[in-house]
């Protein structure tokens, strides 16, 4: 598997995700500057977290129009896997790779903590090392993770298995009190209809090493390496 990480001005999890990818893959990903117009031949494109362009407009709205994003969309259309984490989720959603929008957290504050997530669909390249119903712990760190989409689209997404993760308690119970940002249906991450694009607010790369407090996130990168190698 070959991977690329897109770097925007204001990206700040680009190094973190590169470290996690390298640990699972055994090779460094390409780091691609946002003004580039071409991508190397890769199987996986990661759009990392951060504050692209300071997020002074709507989060991700500026980055979605960076030159490289045309190429990312073209590759996604051709079937490359695209993983958008946190600000990356906001960017690929703004770019139209995923349905929906990410709004200000319901409690209006930036929040950084570990959360529990229930894996909703294990039949994807991102989650093949998990089982549906598994509870995993990933950190969140965002102020705009309140996912919303039109109700009829949401029902279709649920029926298609496009919900990737939902916020829950450590026993897997999904309820509003375990939802850190007010997202529709406790959604933490969603797939596109072809399951080659995943966007999620929590950061798998931040708990991919026991020394840092856990390694649930490592399984996502291991899954991708297994699927794409």
């Amino acid at each position: 598997m070959k991977a690329a990480v897109i770097v925007f001005p204001g990206s700040n999890c680009d190094r973190d995700v590169a470290v996690a990818l390298e640990a699972s893959l055994g090779a460094k990903p390409y780091m691609v500057w946002h003004r580039d117009t071409e991508l190397p031949a890769v199987d996986l494109i990661v759009v990392p977290g951060g504050f692209s362009y300071g997020d002074y407009l709507r989060c991700g709205a500026m980055a979605a129009h960076s030159p490289i994003m045309r190429e990312v969309k073209a590759r996604a259309d051709q079937g490359a896997r695209v993983l958008g984490i946190c600000n990356g989720f906001q960017i690929i959603t703004e770019a139209g790779l995923l349905p929906g929008v990410l709004m200000r957290n319901a409690q209006l504050k930036f929040i950084c903590k570990d959360v529990y997530l229930r894996v909703e669909n294990d039949r994807t390249d991102f989650c093949r090392y998990y089982r549906s119903g598994d509870v995993v712990r990933y950190p969140i760190a965002h102020a705009e993770g309140n996912y919303f989409v039109e109700p009829h689209t949401f029902r279709e997404m649920e029926d298609n298995g496009q919900i990737a993760f939902r916020y829950c308690d450590k026993n897997g119970r999904v309820a509003p009190e375990f939802n850190p940002n007010g997202s529709l249906g406790n959604v933490a991450g969603v797939y596109n209809s072809k399951f080659n694009v995943l966007g999620l607010m929590p950061h798998p790369e931040r708990l991919a090493e026991d020394l840092l407090g856990g390694s649930d996130g490592k399984l996502m990168f291991d899954s991708l390496v297994e699927a794409l190698s």
Binding site: N12, C13, R15, D16, V19, A20, G49, K109, F110, I111, C112, K113, P139, A141, H203, E205, R206, E209, L211, L212, G213
Partner: peptide, 16 residues
């Protein structure tokens, strides 16, 4: 207070 601070970015925070 500290939940409003990103204390994990850069991937090296061993004790939060």
């Amino acid at each position: 207070i500290y939940q409003q601070y990103d204390h994990m970015v850069m991937g090296d925070t061993v004790q939060r």
